[in-house]
Design a protein around this nucleic acid. Structure first.
Lengths: 206, 206
DNA sequence: CATCCTGGCTAATGCGCGTAGCTTTACAGC
DNA sequence: GCTGTAAAGCTACGCGCATTAGCCAGGATG
């Protein structure tokens, strides 16, 4: 009986491959049976390396979120302001398009209070931190920063989700649509920074 | 042996209730067993009224998409331009927040070529048509209209998806963030209508 | 009254997760 | 080199769910 020589990390790596191979549905369709088949091992054997399917999913999610964060930071080093935001948005989408399954993994909802989700929560916070850092450069008032972060995440995430889900049916260049979205986003955040500097204390909405 | 008096529509209605009862995960967690329990019937009996779980899901999705469309049209009657877009966005989000499970159902990807998805495809097209109709009022150039539609859908869909998925952790008013997003969206589309006769937006680097 | 369709049922299959408990491998220590 | 032990595999099993097959009641229709 030859040993497969598995390990915790090896199993997680295989799971990532299975997820990648499954396209946008890859994460939802992730199954211990598939990972076991990939590893050339019987399904129960995986429990020697991983607590459960849910735990494995979490691991994959953590990896995916970290990769997404890394892609974002890599794309924004040495850039600032609109330039950085544009690069971040494109890097984000690029990752999602190249790894649809893993991107889907990042959509998993983590319970802020569940210790099992601690690493995932932390990874998520770091990911948002990248967006926050880029938006810092726009000189937004403190309380608008969060609105801006949410707007940026929403726009890009929504676009990518719809794109991957086949939501864009029209015969029209998707890249161009994304460019337009990013342009709108940048303009919107710049406007937010302008409009809100002046009427900051009294809060008079023009 | 008393009869339950089921019918195709009755089963679908029950499925909708199950989905509603399950919160944001309601659609994913939809199961024939639950519907059968709700109907007071053994699971296999459902097959007399419904082809499969997948088919039932599709039915629920069609209903959800149509309801979303109806909410959008109802909110925009008698309005135009920015006013209409704002109302549409808020109606969209309201539906999602009030029916998280059904909204999740609308995210299902329909195969444009699969005849089984025909009604779902049609419903989706009608839904997009509402957005298109509202954006017509902005006087955008023809080829920018699709970009604008995609941007609007992306922003709002992304926001509610993150909101429902617990993606907004900061202690900051979510309603206000959404207002800000909508304001940015409206401004962005107005800007698109104004300065977009001159040139296309710059292509993204890389 | 006989018939037949309809809508329920039970039984059984297949698949996936997860548990229990056995076996063998690889390595540490002697 | 020998042996003991923990780790890493296995098979067998139980559970829940979808789905198929085939049985049965019961009410409408002739």
């Amino acid at each position: 009986m030859p040993r497969a020589g598995l390990s915790h990390n090896a199993v997680v790596r295989l799971a990532c491959e299975v997820v990648d191979a499954g396209g946008p549905r890859g994460f939802t369709d992730l199954t211990l049976a598939k990972v076991a088949a990939e590893a050339g091992v019987a399904p129960p054997s995986l429990y020697k390396h991983v607590g459960s399917l849910a735990a494995l999913r979490r691991e994959v999610a953590v990896i995916a979120v970290r990769e997404l964060t890394a892609a974002g930071t890599a794309a924004t080093v040495g850039r600032a302001g609109a330039d950085a935001l544009r690069a971040l948005a494109h890097a984000w989408r690029r990752y999602a398009v190249e790894h649809p399954g893993r991107y889907a993994a990042t959509q998993i909802g983590a319970d802020p209070d569940d210790p099992a989700d601690a690493r995932l929560n932390e990874a998520g916070a770091e990911s948002v931190q990248v967006v926050a850092a880029v938006l810092q450069g726009f000189g937004l008032p403190e309380e608008r920063l969060i609105d801006a972060i949410r707007a940026a995440r929403s726009s890009v995430h929504g676009f990518v989700t719809l794109e991957l889900g086949g939501g864009f049916r029209m015969r029209h260049d998707v890249d161009q649509s994304f460019d337009t979205l990013v342009t709108m986003l940048v303009a919107g955040i710049e406007a937010l920074a302008r409009n809100d500097h002046e009427s900051s204390p009294p809060r008079s909405p023009r």
